[in-house]
Amino acid sequence: MSQKRNRAARNFGLKSRCMISAGRNALREGMQSHASIGTMTDRWRVFCSYVKKTHGISDMRRIEKSHLKQYSEHLKARCNLTEKTGKMRPMSPVTAQNYISAVNRVLEIARGDKVIRIDAVGEAKMTKRTGICSQSKTVSEQVHQRVTQTVEQRIGAMMDLQRTLGLRFEESAKINAGKALAQAEKSGEVVIKDGTKGGRARTVPITSSEQVAALRAAAAIQGSHRSMIPAGQSYANFRAEAYKQIENTGSTYHGQRHHYAQQRYQAIVGAPCPVVAGVPHREQHQHLSRALGVSVEAARKIDHAARLQVSQELGHGRIVITNAYLG
Rank of each mutant, 00 (worst) to 15 (best):
Met1Gly: 12
Lys4Leu: 11
Lys4Pro: 00
Arg5His: 10
Arg7Tyr: 07
Arg10Lys: 11
Gly13Arg: 08
Leu14His: 06
Ser16Gly: 06
Met19Gly: 01
Met19Gln: 06
Ser21Ile: 12
Ala22Cys: 09
Arg24Trp: 03
Arg28Pro: 03
Glu29Trp: 05
Met31Gln: 10
Gln32Gly: 07
Gly38Thr: 05
Arg61Met: 10
Arg61Asn: 10
Arg61Asp: 05
Arg61Gly: 07
Glu64Tyr: 00
His67Asn: 11
Gln70Lys: 12
His74Ala: 09
Lys76Phe: 04
Arg78Thr: 06
Arg78Leu: 01
Glu83Ser: 15
Thr85Arg: 14
Lys87Ile: 08
Met88Glu: 12
Met88Ser: 15
Arg89Leu: 12
Pro90Lys: 05
Ser92Val: 04
Pro93Asn: 05
Pro93Gln: 09
Thr95Gly: 09
Ala96Thr: 03
Asn98Arg: 14
Ala102Ser: 15
Val103Gln: 00
Asn104Gly: 08
Asp113Thr: 08
Ile116Ser: 07
Arg117Phe: 02
Arg117His: 10
Ala120Gly: 04
Gly122Arg: 14
Thr127Asn: 02
Lys128Val: 12
Lys128Asn: 12
Thr130Glu: 11
Gly131Pro: 06
Gly131Asp: 08
Cys133Phe: 03
Ser134Phe: 09
Gln135Leu: 13
Gln135Asp: 10
Ser136Lys: 04
Gln149Pro: 09
Thr150Val: 14
Gly156Phe: 03
Ala157Ile: 06
Arg163His: 14
Leu167Glu: 03
Arg168Lys: 15
Arg168Asn: 12
Arg168Phe: 07
Phe169Cys: 08
Glu171Pro: 09
Ile175Asn: 05
Asn176Ala: 15
Ala177Leu: 10
Ala177His: 04
Gly178Lys: 11
Lys179Met: 11
Leu181Asn: 01
Glu185Ile: 12
Lys186Leu: 14
Gly188Asp: 09
Gly188Ile: 11
Glu189His: 13
Lys197Tyr: 07
Lys197Ser: 09
Gly198Arg: 13
Gly199Glu: 12
Arg202Phe: 01
Val204Gly: 01
Val204Ala: 04
Pro205Glu: 07
Ile206Asn: 01
Ser209Val: 12
Glu210Lys: 14
Arg216Ile: 07
Gln222Pro: 06
Ser224Val: 13
Ser227Arg: 05
Ile229His: 01
Gly232Gln: 09
Gly232Tyr: 06
Ala236Leu: 11
Ala240Lys: 15
Ile246Phe: 01
Ile246Asp: 00
Glu247Asp: 12
Thr252Leu: 01
Tyr253Leu: 11
Gln256Gly: 02
His259Phe: 05
His259Asn: 13
Gly270Ala: 05
Ala271Asn: 06
Ala271Pro: 00
Cys273Glu: 03
Pro274Ala: 07
Val275Asp: 01
Ala277Phe: 01
Gly278Tyr: 00
Gly278Asn: 06
His287Arg: 12
Ser289Cys: 10
Ala291Asp: 05
Ala291His: 05
Ser295Trp: 03
Lys301Cys: 02
Ile302Phe: 00
Ala305Ser: 14
Gln312Phe: 07
Gly315Trp: 07
His316Leu: 11
Gly317Glu: 13
Asn323Gly: 08
Ala324Asn: 13
Tyr325Ala: 04
